[in-house]
Amino acid sequence: MPSPVRQNSAHRLAAGALLLALAALLGYLESVILPPLPVPGLRLGLANIAVVLALAMHGPRVAAVVSLGRVLIVALATGTAGGPAFLLSLAGACAALAAMVLLASAGPAFSVVGWSVVGSAAHVTGQLLVASLLVSSSVPLALLPVSLGLSVPLGLAVGSTVRLLLSRIPDLSLSAAGR
């Protein structure tokens, strides 16, 4: 298995496409199988498993493709592209990605668990900010304490899953940049 620096563009492209498909599938399964949580903007975030994996294995560029690509694919598949739901998803994805990349660039002090927690918190914060703009009121921000509080266990669950994947699957762990 090549190390991250030796990965050629074909390998990176294939891995990115695989993770993008995984993210879209997990996001779809979550929306179909699991009932939405009774707080707007809050989900288990199963699709974020693929994004955190991409960030750990291939860096911020592939993670951005996986994260934003998933939002676009889901929007096209559900016919919500350009609508309010799409804007909410995009805001959450961008905020989460930016926060996770920032933490990942800080070095080994933070593991994938920390990335996931900060990504989860940034995701709900970004969504509530855009929701406030859509509603033209600060009312959605009143949900911030509940959403931020619940984002911690959800982020820990996703981060722990990614850490488990990176440690248990040899092919993944060999090319992982952070754990």
């Binding site: 002090a109 933070f110 593991s111 668990v113 920390g114 921000l141 931020l148």
Partner: peptide, 26 residues
């Protein structure tokens, strides 16, 4: 979890608690 991860968790929980008065005021 690393020490940095613990700090992240504490920071998010603190942010959630600090946002309670602001949310109530809204």
């Amino acid at each position: 979890m690393t020490r940095g991860d613990t700090l992240v968790v504490v920071a998010v929980v603190a942010l959630a608690l600090l946002s309670v008065p602001g949310a109530a005021a809204m």
